[in-house]
Amino acid sequence: MADRKPLYLMTPALVWLSLFMVIPCLLILALAFFRRGIYGGIEYDFTFENIALVFDPLYAGIFIKSAIIAGQAALIASVVGYAAAYAIAAMPKSRQPLLLFLAILPFWSNYLVRTYAWIVLLNREGLIVSVARALGYNQELPSLLYTETAVIVGLVYNYLPFVILACYAPLARMNAEITEASRDLGAGGWTTFRRITLPMTVPGIATGFVFVFVLSIGNFVTPALLGGGQFQMIGNLVYAQFLTANDWPFGAALSMALIAIMMGLLTLQTFATERASGGRVRDADG
């Protein structure tokens, strides 16, 4: 009887997840191998056309472009986020929870609103331009909004709190005696950081990087709002297949490619984490 207990507790949730997540996702997987009907419906005969179309130079180009943008966003967010996490971990222990709370607070406010805030800032009549004018910069400024840079800034802004959180965990867990040992053995501050702290906290950075990358490459709101209409990323492409182009099988194939990229990266990250950590850090018991 004791062994059956967990099962009936878990059943309702597992049924829900199977019905409204697993089956729909399998459906999408199946959909990717069907043909698009003439009037936008679905014809149930098996084909690789949709998968092949993903690798068509036109669409592969969008994939690469999305990956480059997501990669830049993830890189910037990782560097800035790590620095912030490091700075928080360097503050007095009693202050750290509050600082961390403040760092993740924006993450919990509405995504659309946070993105909209950047429209206000980057607008042709926006704050940044006004400030530049007020400072006496009278030249015609290049448009800040509806650019690749705007999209990257938006992505970094939205996901930075997550990276800070991911990087803070291993930094806070580091035993103070480890860095002291490095100093004691003759290493200066920078060498200690490069050879001890950084390698030991790589898993946090990897987690942060992968999540920002994955969330960015499939993003559709930020490119739509900050990139303007003319700017396509995979998310927008998927959106279009379902809501305007009405090519569901191709949209499904694109989503599967997205999932494949995500799973590949997560596997890589797990692998990197296992390699880098080399075991748990023992806490000092004094």
Binding site: N175, E180, D184, L185, M200, G278, G286
Partner: peptide
């Protein structure tokens, strides 16, 4: 500073570099 002293310390936790 500790990194310029010809004195070394064996830490209580040993503080071995885990990686």
């Amino acid at each position: 500073p500790p990194n310029h002293r010809p004195i070394n310390l064996m830490f209580q936790s040993y503080a071995l570099f885990p990686h």
